[in-house]
Design a protein around this nucleic acid. Structure first.
Lengths: 174, 174
DNA sequence: ACCAATGTAAAACGATCGTTTTACATTGCA
DNA sequence: TGCAATGTAAAACGATCGTTTTACATTGGT
């Protein structure tokens, strides 16, 4: 496996499980199996590494949301939490931990959330047959809520959100 | 104003705006207007101060949720974000930043989320006339989703969540 | 065979972390 | 009047932070 890939994967895991600020560079070098010299050659700085983790996660996450129906959207989330666990949204967490003061991170978060918002709108439009910004906003809320409620209520919460979205969609159809 | 109260209030503000880990004790002493000696006499440790901030926030937040209807529940959230802004759930954030490794914090978070879950169930039962755990879970998801989506979508999101909850409630009634 | 690139191991950088201590000022009550 | 409590200001604690540097090993290409 490529050095960059290994580092990014190890960093994502540590940031996600223990927090961004609480994860020191020594722990990263150990987990990535490389010297700090190589790490800095590769990542530049901790903030740059955080931003790269977010960019890569955005790709992995958004790839799963290439679906046509709202039901499939929540099914994708069910898959995600089964594989990745539920520790909340890493993007919002990174922004909160840095207070929005790190530009590279704030930009990565903004880009992801904008793409996510657009995707939800597209899926709702495809499923419904026409655009419905209000319904899209509600589906987005359910998705975000499932992500965060699952932290303490468990993965079952995603099913509850899926059912709720189905009701809203059905009502919008008639 | 009491020293303890002033410290807790200043700490809550800094933790919320800049993150728990990113907020150092020197910034806390300065914001609270007291020496580090007095701060430690009063709070014991940073972890204890974090736990106390969460306990006090739980009281302030839950006091606002003493309502009878689901609509009032989301109206209370609208008021909250208008006054306190929208930076996500401070409880989940504290847990994520510490990786769940600090017992006093993990317990404060668990206690709050359990109380919150119970309260939502009560409000739904009161509004509906009978218990409905499934609907309660969906309302909880909408509430949590509004809290977190509002971080990047703005306060309008809470209204969208409120409308969605009304639809689900209406459907459950018939 | 050799140079340049790329890696490791480990020490060191100054800064900042959470916390304790020292020395001193102010206060309220017996 | 005087003691005990409670506060401030500031230095100091060792640890750890993110980052750079020094010294050396391994490799691949011409």
């Amino acid at each position: 496996m490529d050095l960059t890939t290994k580092l990014t994967a190890a960093a994502e895991r540590l940031f996600d499980r223990h927090g961004f600020m609480a994860t020191g560079m020594d722990r990263l070098t150990e987990a990535a199996g490389m010297s700090s010299r190589t790490l800095y050659k590769n990542a530049g700085s901790k903030a740059a590494l955080m931003a790269r983790v977010l960019t890569q996660r955005d790709r992995r996450f958004m790839a799963r949301l290439e679906v046509q129906t709202v039901d499939a959207l929540f099914a994708a989330l069910e898959d995600w939490v089964r594989v990745e666990g539920c520790r909340g949204c890493l993007f919002l967490r990174s922004r909160a931990e840095t207070g929005g003061d790190t530009p590279e991170i704030a930009e990565a978060v903004a880009a992801h959330k904008e793409a996510f918002h657009r995707r939800v709108g597209e899926v709702v439009a495809t499923d419904l047959g026409c655009e419905d910004p209000v319904l899209a906003e509600q589906v987005l809320v359910l998705f975000e809520g499932a992500t965060h409620a699952a932290v303490y209520r468990g993965a079952q919460t995603v099913s509850a959100a899926k059912a709720a979205a189905a009701i809203l969609l059905e009502r919008a159809r008639s």
